Computed example of a mutant assay.
Amino acid sequence: MNEAEGRLLHVPVLLQEVLQNLPTPLNTVIDLTLGLGGHSSAILAAMPPSSRLIGMDKDQSALDYAGKLLYPQAEAAGVELTLVKNDFAALGQWAAAQPSLQAQFILADIGVSSPQIDLPERGFSYRLAGPLDMRMDQSRGQSAAEVLATLTYEQLADIIHLYGEERYSRRIAAKIVAYREKRAITDTLTLADIVRSAVPKAALKEKQDPARRTFQALRIYVNDELTALQEMLQAAVNLLAPGGRLAVISFHSLEDRIVKRQFHAFAHPCTCLPDLPCCCGRQPAGRVLTPKPLTASAAECEANFRAHSAKLRIFEKM
């Protein structure tokens, strides 16, 4: 990907809402999902000299692109920039090797970045022809094609129902299994056509393409996204300095539900009965700054269709 392609493909969502919730001082910032550096570039502009920005991503191509954008900007601002190839699911292990590190702000923009969706060779899109991959880190793990070839009908149906919230999951799984008995499912458009052929005709007239939910489900499964999210949230709160903030942007209900519940658990850890004095000894880690998630303005939604489903939640550590 060249720089012009990157600029066209990437528009950071809820950017103003993120910037409006930066704490002070801002000595150390960690962007756990660096992508092409859109959020980090704007945050860097608000950081004082001698502060530190750590950008993390498991996609090496994203790190390479973001580095070209951020290193000159960081040098001009006197900010120390460190880029790290790491899955945020492994944030705890990485943090264990940085025992003195404390951050004032940690950002996680969950989900697939625009370039990953829009580049056919990554295999995320049900609209573009490409190999059925869907791995955010293409150097490891099973591709979506391998998953479709090996899982049972019951496993596929459960995954599509749970992660895609798809009401026709069993019909879709049955079509996939029937098709793969004749030939392998290795490209995105073939899978999209299989899904569309499995749903009732009325579903084809809905605003959302019926293939979207199945593609979402496979992407979540291939990358183990929900487990990774829960592990990241705990590790990130542990990395925060007192008064530091963790900001998480999610794009669908499963992710948002996990973030909401985990933030509530951080703020209200007591497991005792409500009418009795606390005897468990568990103390709040901080407070939730967003009882309701922040969402994109009408203007942002009009300018960037991916902002429609974005939700931002923020937790502040005591």
Rank of each mutant, 00 (worst) to 15 (best):
A265N: 14
C278G: 11
A178L: 09
Q102M: 04
P12D: 03
A265S: 10
L69T: 13
A66P: 08
H161L: 09
D158Y: 12
S197Q: 08
P293N: 06
A173T: 06
G123H: 01
A45R: 07
F266C: 05
S51R: 03
E225H: 08
P210S: 00
V13W: 02
T82E: 15
V259D: 08
L119G: 07
Q142H: 10
H10Y: 15
S50Q: 13
Q73A: 15
T227P: 04
A192H: 00
S309K: 13
A144S: 14
Q16H: 14
P242C: 10
V29N: 11
Y163E: 07
H39D: 12
Q216W: 02
Y126A: 04
E206P: 03
E300P: 00
L191M: 11
F305R: 10
G243T: 06
A129K: 12
A174E: 13
V237H: 01
N86S: 15
L34N: 04
A4M: 06
A129G: 06
T190K: 05
E121I: 00
Y179I: 08
A299D: 13
L44W: 02
Y163N: 05
V13P: 04
G130M: 05
R167G: 06
Q93H: 15
A184N: 12
D64R: 12
I176P: 01
L289Y: 08
L8N: 11
I106Q: 01
T271D: 09
D256M: 03
S41M: 03
C301T: 06
V84G: 13
R122C: 01
G286I: 03
I110R: 04
P120Y: 10
E181G: 12
H161W: 12
L132T: 12
I258E: 03
T24Y: 11
N238H: 09
L162Q: 15
H264S: 01
S169Y: 10
S169C: 09
Y168N: 11
A247P: 07
V195H: 07
P99E: 14
E80I: 13
A76Q: 15
S100T: 14
R7W: 15
L189Y: 11
K205L: 15
Q20E: 15
G243L: 01
P23E: 00
S100D: 14
D137K: 11
I54H: 02
Q104T: 11
I54S: 00
N238K: 11
F266W: 02
N304W: 04
M232A: 14
F266R: 04
P48K: 03
F215D: 00
P25S: 13
P277Y: 12
L19P: 14
S125P: 04
D209F: 12
A299L: 03
V13G: 08
S51T: 06
D31T: 13
Y179C: 09
L34R: 00
P48R: 05
A74Y: 08
R52N: 11
P120D: 00
D31I: 06
L53K: 01
L34Q: 02
S143D: 05
L191K: 04
R245G: 00
T295S: 10
H252T: 11
R219D: 07
G37D: 00
E166W: 04
A42C: 10
L189P: 05
V29R: 09
V199L: 11
L240T: 01
P200D: 06
P291S: 03
A144L: 08
G123T: 01
K182G: 13
T290K: 01
L36V: 05
I160Q: 02
V195F: 02
E75H: 08
D158V: 10
R306N: 12
A174N: 09
L44S: 03
G6T: 12
E225C: 07
F124P: 10
